[in-house]
């Protein structure tokens, strides 16, 4: 507080104000301005700049430093960006396979469950794994979410049998693709930008994503996207990362401020995402999309053995157990 302020004024007078000040480049890959990521990073900027009295300057890039997550990770590692947002699928590219755990289908039952896990022991352990396996290149400072993913396609899903033979545009990550295959669906890769046309013109039968994402793209207004079944198969996790080596170079005070700003950004992102999820679900309903719920139990049962097997391969069986316990 007060002491810092006088310090700053003093140093400003004799021209040393800049010596301790740092600039932080924060980036996510979403170009649409109406995005929870943007709200989260703007909160980060607000808190960091306010708390530091402008000694920390934060520049937020919405897609301008790269629309590919892989490029953002590369830039974080090289020091060309200081704060970035990444999904588990892209983290595994850096050779840290354990993060894949968070991409398992039906790992979380609800947002409550998810929040409990990422803010608890498992969240901490995962942060440690990321830091250690990346040799301190990456330091996790917060867990964000990109919403809960549901099925949407050319017909509503009443039971798992309805998925038999349907092509579904989904992630290419191993466990996810294995899971959909087991349901009887056919995972298909199609670029996000081409998906609207693909659903419109019968290139794929269905897709899966969270409301804010597919409704913004009008997928719910296509022939093959207007039936939404709330499968809730993935409460998605996103990692808010800073470069650990650079973080260590900051002063203790700066480190505290950054962690505080990260914490505030987490709250802001969650709130923004939860609000958008309701908002875009309502838009989908207003536009005439048909939404149905489904008994998720058979889907969860199908996922369990896959989770067990994949967790064992990744060596995270204990973490998986802890996540399951947290649900009870």
């Amino acid at each position: 507080g007060g002491e810092e302020e006088t310090n700053n004024e003093g140093s400003g007078d004799n021209g040393e104000g800049g010596s301790d000040s740092i600039k932080i480049v924060a980036a996510h890959n979403q170009t649409s301005p109406e995005n929870p990521y943007q709200d989260g990073l703007l909160k980060f900027k607000e808190v960091a700049e306010e708390e530091s009295n402008g000694n920390i300057e934060v520049e937020v890039h919405a897609g301008t430093l790269g629309t590919e997550e892989s490029e953002l990770v590369e830039k974080l590692k090289l020091g060309a960006a200081d704060v970035v947002l990444v999904s588990p699928g892209f983290m595994t590219q850096t050779g840290i396979d354990e993060v894949n755990l968070f991409a398992f289908p039906y790992l979380f039952e609800s947002y409550d469950h998810w929040e409990k896990v990422v803010q608890g022991e498992v969240g901490e352990e995962m942060a440690q794994i990321i830091n250690e396996k990346s040799n301190n290149d990456f330091k996790l400072v917060g867990y964000w979410t990109a919403g809960v993913r549901h099925y949407y396609g050319k017909k509503p899903i009443e039971s798992m049998d309805d998925l038999e033979g349907m092509t579904i545009r989904t992630q290419t990550s191993g466990v996810v693709s294995d899971y959909w295959k087991q349901t009887g669906a056919i995972p298909t890769s199609l670029a996000w930008g081409e998906l609207y046309q693909g659903l419109q013109q019968d290139v794929v039968d269905s897709a899966e994503n969270a409301y804010p994402y597919f409704v913004q793209q009008n997928h719910h207004q296509t022939d093959n996207g207007k039936y939404i079944t709330e499968t809730g198969h993935d409460y998605t996790t996103r990692f808010l990362l800073v470069n650990g080596n650079e973080f260590d170079n900051y002063t203790e005070e700066q480190q505290e401020i950054i962690l505080k700003a990260a914490e505030a950004s987490v709250q802001a992102e969650w709130e923004s995402l939860y609000a958008q999820e309701e908002e875009y679900k309502q838009i989908a309903i207003d536009d005439g999309a048909e939404i149905n719920e489904i008994d998720r139990q058979p889907f969860i049962e199908l996922a369990k053995p896959l989770q067990d097997q994949a967790a064992e391969e990744l060596g995270v069986t204990d973490l998986l157990e802890k996540i399951r316990q947290a649900a009870e």
């Binding site: 600039k23 480049v25 790269g66 590919e68 490029e71 590369e74 830039k75 090289l78 020091g79 060309a80 670029a191």
Partner: peptide
């Protein structure tokens, strides 16, 4: 200062990394 030199080869490759 804020952009490391390694960005140059990195961008050259990433510029082509598009289907």
């Amino acid at each position: 200062e804020y952009i490391p030199e390694l960005t140059v080869p990195m961008k050259m490759l990433n510029g082509l990394n598009s289907f």
